[in-house]
Computed example of a mutant assay.
Amino acid sequence: MAELLTADAVREGLSGLSDWSGDPTGIGRTAQLSSFPAAIGVVDRVAAVAEELDHHPDIDIRWRTLTFRCVTHSAGGVTHRDFELARRIDEIIRSAA
């Protein structure tokens, strides 16, 4: 099982990410895309990465606004796996803009 991060480690990890916030219970960000199809394209790409990493975010879709939440449910909080997924989500969002 992945090791839970301390509150300090989560704060440090968040300092290296743009637009993410959270605490040891989960990290999240919201992104606004140019259109609904663009938003769904991002979700499709995130889904492929999530399968590759075998680590899946919670995703809320509201028209062209996406909210991602990363938490390692099996560990009961945030682990390094969540930060890896967050970085990959950021790459996808940047490339869609």
Rank of each mutant, 00 (worst) to 15 (best):
V10S: 03
G76A: 07
S74E: 14
S34G: 15
E12W: 05
E84V: 14
D90T: 03
I27R: 04
A75D: 10
V49W: 06
E52F: 11
A39N: 04
F83A: 01
G28Y: 06
D8Q: 10
T65K: 13
I61C: 06
S34C: 14
T79L: 13
I40G: 00
F36P: 05
G22D: 13
P57I: 13
D58A: 15
I27A: 08
T79I: 12
A86K: 00
A7C: 02
V49C: 08
V43F: 03
L66P: 00
E12C: 04
V10R: 02
L14H: 01
C70Q: 13
R69E: 15
V43W: 01
G16Q: 11
R81N: 15
I89F: 01
R88Q: 11
A38Y: 03
F83R: 01
A7E: 09
P37A: 08
H55D: 08
L85N: 04
I40F: 10
D60N: 14
R88I: 04
I40A: 03
T79S: 15
W63M: 12
R29D: 06
Q32I: 13
T6L: 04
T65L: 13
A97F: 11
L5F: 00
I89Y: 01
H56M: 04
R64E: 15
R62F: 10
F83T: 00
H55F: 05
G22R: 11
L5V: 02
R64A: 15
A48F: 15
R94W: 00
E12V: 04
L53K: 13
A31E: 10
V49A: 12
A9F: 02
E84L: 10
R29T: 08
I59E: 04
R64Q: 15
I93Y: 00
A31F: 07
E12K: 10
R11P: 02
T30C: 11
V49P: 03
M1S: 08
H73R: 09
S74R: 09
D44W: 12
M1A: 10
A7D: 09
F36W: 13
D90N: 01
V43I: 09
D19V: 05
I92M: 07
R87P: 00
W20Q: 05
I89Q: 00
H55S: 06
G26S: 14
P57C: 12
V43C: 05
H56R: 08
R88A: 13
A86T: 02
I40D: 03
I89M: 04
F83H: 00
T72I: 08
T6W: 02
D54G: 15
R62W: 10
E12I: 07
P57H: 12
R88D: 05
L14N: 03
D58W: 12
P37R: 05
G28H: 11
P57G: 11
D58R: 12
R29I: 01
V10F: 04
S35K: 07
A7I: 05
S95V: 03
Q32V: 13
R88C: 05
V43K: 01
L5D: 01
E51K: 07
V49D: 07
D60I: 14
T72N: 03
E51Q: 09
E84T: 13
D8T: 09
A96V: 02
L33D: 08
T25A: 15
D23L: 07
S34W: 14
